[in-house]
């Protein structure tokens, strides 16, 4: 897994998709991130990240049913693939290892 690089924003988006599970589509993801992390997310950055990760195989997507809201346009739902999950796990694992490797003395500041 040495080729994998996951950007910080990508990681957040990927995790949020997992959080939302069946309801992970553009507006919902954006709202969830904005609410939980208290930061602004632009539609452009979000969509670009989603598609980039789908190309990499971390996500897959499908189109939902048409509804009356949104001008009759279908939603695109995203879900984390097993590969995406393993990447997330890998990232978390490496962070944990790093945390564990920090000597106690390192964070003693006074």
């Amino acid at each position: 897994m040495n080729k994998i690089s996951l950007g910080e924003f990508e990681e957040i988006v990927l995790l949020t998709v997992a959080v939302l599970y069946d309801e992970a589509y553009g507006v919902a993801i954006k709202a969830e991130i904005e609410q939980r992390l208290d930061r602004k997310v632009s539609v452009g950055a979000l969509q670009a990240a989603l598609h980039r990760m789908e190309d990499k195989g971390l996500l897959n997507s499908w189109l939902g049913e048409a509804t009356q809201v949104r001008g009759g346009k279908r939603k695109r739902y995203f879900r984390v693939t097993p590969y995406g999950q393993s990447v997330l796990a890998y990232v978390r694992e490496t962070r944990n290892q790093l945390w564990d490797a920090i000597p106690n003395i390192a964070f003693k500041f006074s």
Binding site: Y25, G26, K30, V43, R74, K75, R76
Partner: peptide, 16 residues
């Protein structure tokens, strides 16, 4: 391929 759902998202956001 992406036009439909993105513009759908945008419309939803617009209404909000």
């Amino acid at each position: 391929d992406f036009e439909e759902d993105i513009s759908g998202d945008l419309e939803e956001l617009f209404q909000q």
